[in-house]
Nucleic acid binder design. Structure first.
Lengths: 229, 229
DNA sequence: GCATGCATCTATGTATACATCATGAGGCTA
DNA sequence: TAGCCTCATGATGTATACATAGATGCATGC
């Protein structure tokens, strides 16, 4: 009926109502989650045989899963050598957050002249915000709602192209968000407050204020953890 | 030494110096080119066995190639049913062109305050423009240089995230550009003129003018051919 | 002691065989 | 004749076997 739970999570291959369509799909989602949660550390080597054996299947779907993971930027495949979990770099963090900010600002600008659309988006953001407040005690769940907040803005226009972008960059953004949340245990309330301010700017249709808020929000949230150069 | 020919074509899997790393890669590029050039018409059914047989290889790399083609949005795979060449829709056209305009505008805004960067970008654009003028008689080559012009703007910042986006959307953008050029045989000089105007706006660092020029450029160029709803 | 070349090993890349599911033709029944 | 059931067919999804290229370690020669 109402798909309020799948909506905000646009871009994430897992945690969707639709069940995996194949073993390869299931493997890719499972490994992606482990990488994003940090259970598989950056730089770790993955072999098709290991992944296959760990799930009791053959190498064929495992190989497909590796290709999918490469598409999500979570592993790097060196031909004839092997695959390794990618290491988040300062550059990747900057570029991905910039890109997301650009997409969000673009959407806010698009709805700025339409009071009804602004209200609809703001309403949706407050829903996500409420869920985020409930998860202050669960870092992983909190990070998920944090991602959902930004995804809700990006995806509000319903563009399938944006949805595709989220499908490509979503997993890496969640990984970064998990890192940010894990290193800011005591400042999660700040994240919520900043989100609330962003929602207000959206509701007011104040693009300039939104732009002024979004960059510091990214900068402050993603400053407390170390990544490779 | 100077990679002036690979640079502007960022985002396209084929026509790169780097040769294919596997049979699967070679198949994906070959089929992608046939789709983009219109040799494989929209809606056509593709089977792994056909693709494999056409190139004298087994189904395994053919299957990988199909997955890659799906990632590029050139084919749509229905589980257990088959794959078909995607049909360009008015919505896809609008969304892809909007996205590219956004990325270009973002880059122009980024270099607006840096005279040296503006000059460098403008210089590069004029290089591509010169090549485009030489190809007025060859629609396919002209379309390639048209894409290269926009790619040069998008990618000027050197963002790998943008590069990834181009890698995903590039093939579909080239397909649209081919359609636009094919249906505007007598108006190609107009395209060149509009590109020249865009290059001037870039050199002047005039973001407002660039924004005012880019949307009509997209609209006029991509009006003359029909796509599905 | 150190560099070089070879053997071996591991993991990927590809080929082939089998399993599963969607589709459609054909016949049966009411 | 309309509707449904069955089965043949063809395609994908998966498993397994073989081919090939990097990597590692050791022996050999200097």
């Amino acid at each position: 009926m109402h798909q309020e739970d799948t909506g905000p999570l646009i871009g994430l291959p897992w945690s969707g109502e639709e069940r995996p369509r194949s073993i390869a799909d299931r493997l890719a989602r499972a490994v992606a989650q482990r990488i994003v949660r940090g259970e598989l550390e950056a730089g770790a080597l993955l072999t098709e045989a290991e992944v296959a054996a760990a799930h009791g299947v053959s190498r064929t779907p495992a190989r497909e899963a590796m290709l999918q993971l490469e598409g999500w930027g979570l592993v790097s495949i060196a031909p004839k050598k092997g695959a390794s979990v990618t290491v988040p770099t300062a550059r990747e963090r900057r570029e991905l957050l910039d890109l997301r900010s650009m997409l969000e600002t673009h959407e806010v600008r698009r709805v700025a002249d339409d009071a009804a659309a602004r209200a609809a988006l703001a309403c949706r953001l407050r829903e996500v915000l409420a869920r985020q407040r409930e998860e202050l005690g669960d870092p992983a769940a909190f990070a998920m709602q944090d991602y959902a907040f930004h995804a809700a803005i990006m995806h509000h226009g319903g563009s399938r192209a944006v949805e595709e972008i989220a499908g490509v960059f979503g997993p890496r953004l969640v990984r970064l968000t998990n890192l940010a949340v894990a290193s800011s245990a005591g400042r999660l309330q700040t994240f919520v407050d900043e989100h609330a301010a962003l929602a207000e700017a959206v509701e007011a249709g104040d693009v300039v204020r939104f732009e002024a808020l979004i960059d510091p929000h990214m900068a402050s949230g993603h400053r407390g953890y170390e990544v490779a150069q």
